[in-house]
Simulated scan of single mutants.
Amino acid sequence: MTYRTVQSNGLTLFYLRYWHPIFAAWRATKQKVIARYHPEDLSRIFVSVDGKHFVEATFADLRRGRVSLWEQRSALRSLRTQGKEFVTEAKVFDAIDEQRRIVSRARSQTLGANRQGEALKELAPQILGEAPNLVLPNALVKGSEPAVDYNKPPSVFNVEPL
């Protein structure tokens, strides 16, 4: 919950602009409003003058999609580390889009690497059959015995006393 004053272009919260038709009347009376939001979805907020009757305000630019508070703060940190002192709503959304592209690219690369790992596990018996001198880690060979026999006592190593 936070208190704000409605400006001519709407209500700004977390560098994001919101609008509802009732804001025009509230702006004329210069009333402070109470804004409530859900951190997982900043695409809409709930605004009230008296704290009892809330109206739902959405982004002023209706083309914008859902954004979480975590994404907004991460984008803001990214903009600050890039040295951008003047932050606008457009810059915040551009930074969020870039972060989403990075995550999507990493996710697809991870899935590709996992698929390659699965393919290696399936090919391991064939590779061993073709080249018996090739040693693969035990995790790649299904049903193979571990290289260490844990039933035997450990070997003793001669070391210098301290």
Rank of each mutant, 00 (worst) to 15 (best):
H53S: 15
P132R: 12
R63K: 10
V141P: 12
R4W: 09
T81L: 08
F14T: 04
A60C: 05
K52D: 06
V47Y: 02
N9E: 04
K84V: 04
T12G: 04
A57W: 01
Y15S: 07
E98S: 10
G83V: 01
W26D: 06
V49N: 10
G129P: 00
S74K: 09
E89F: 03
K121Q: 10
A75V: 14
R107L: 08
L128Y: 05
W70M: 09
E98V: 02
L120S: 11
A25D: 00
R73D: 05
S48W: 07
R44E: 09
V92E: 10
A106R: 15
A28Q: 03
G112V: 06
V103M: 02
T2V: 13
R77D: 14
P21E: 01
V47N: 09
T5H: 13
V159R: 13
E122K: 13
I102A: 08
L13S: 02
I127L: 10
E98Q: 08
E56F: 02
Y150K: 15
G117E: 03
G10F: 01
F23V: 06
P132H: 06
E130P: 00
K91R: 15
K91Q: 11
Q126C: 06
L69K: 03
V67T: 02
V148G: 12
S43G: 04
K32H: 14
Q82P: 05
R64M: 07
E130Q: 03
G51K: 13
R73I: 02
R77K: 14
G65Q: 12
Q31P: 09
E122P: 00
A119H: 01
T58A: 12
Q72R: 05
A147Q: 06
L136T: 11
P146E: 15
P21S: 01
V92A: 12
R100V: 01
H20P: 00
Q82T: 05
R80E: 14
D61P: 03
S48T: 04
T81F: 04
